[in-house]
């Protein structure tokens, strides 16, 4: 492709441009309120290039309406279109758990969830757990028990850990370890993760 062709593609891409509704535009800008230079970093969603699917869904309680490439994963929708980069890509094949988010309250691997599937549904990411400055008890428990090192798998670990408690699976160490085995931590913080969930299970229940 020549540069000329490239320009054509870019301009013609505008016609297929992602439709981000007015309210959604506001939403996208406020999706990353905690980032220091959020204004600078919120991406203007670029043109999509494949056939798109029109979806409308909730992310962390806010409505997003978008035309998204039919091939895209929920993970790439969150990270590359909505600047919700707390959710991580570790394998892109459902083999590591770094991309775990809640879909209608249940943990899923966002890398194997096609973006089109979330139409009409509710997505919660790591950015949606805290209430303002107040950490979710599981986030606090991860700090208290140093249940992390590099932090890359941590968002996925926490999303699974929350579900471990809310689904009543944090009953004993064996059950917690089994439930959490879909989240690989290469730094090996499993001991701290187990302790964090045991701690949060008490706080969340009591």
């Amino acid at each position: 492709m020549t540069d000329h062709g490239c320009n054509n593609e870019t301009s013609s891409g505008v016609t297929r441009r992602t439709v981000l509704g007015v309210s959604a535009g506001v939403t996208a800008a406020s999706l990353v309120p905690l980032r220091l230079d959020a204004q600078e970093q919120v991406p203007v969603p670029g043109p999509e290039n494949g056939p798109t699917t029109h979806i409308s869904f909730q992310v962390n309680g806010e409505r997003v309406t978008i035309d998204v490439d039919g091939r895209a994963s929920l993970l790439d929708l969150l990270r590359e279109r909505l600047a919700l980069t707390g959710t991580k890509k570790g394998c892109d094949h459902g083999q590591c758990g770094a991309c775990t988010v809640h879909l209608d309250g249940r943990p899923v691997s966002s890398c194997l969830t096609m973006a089109a599937k979330v139409d009409g549904r509710q997505v919660t990411t790591i950015e949606g757990l805290a209430r303002g400055d107040e950490l979710h008890p599981m986030q606090q428990a991860f700090i208290d028990n140093d249940a992390l090192q590099c932090g890359y798998c941590t968002p996925g670990q926490i999303m699974s850990a929350v579900a471990c408690v809310t689904q009543g699976q944090a009953t004993d160490p064996g059950a917690i370890r089994e439930f959490m085995s879909g989240n690989i931590c290469r730094c090996g913080a499993y001991v701290g993760i187990l302790a964090a969930i045991a701690q949060a299970a008490e706080t969340m229940e009591g």
């Binding site: 991406p43 670029g46 991580k88 890509k89 950015e127 950490l135 992390l148 932090g151 941590t154």
Partner: peptide, 27 residues
């Protein structure tokens, strides 16, 4: 003392290389 950068990590705010978004970015 607690890990000083743990809060950003549990909030999903810590930025790793590929988390950077810039206007007009290509893939």
């Amino acid at each position: 003392i607690a890990r000083v950068d743990a809060r950003g990590k549990v909030l999903g705010q810590t930025q790793y290389g590929a988390d950077m978004h810039l206007p007009g970015m290509l893939y």
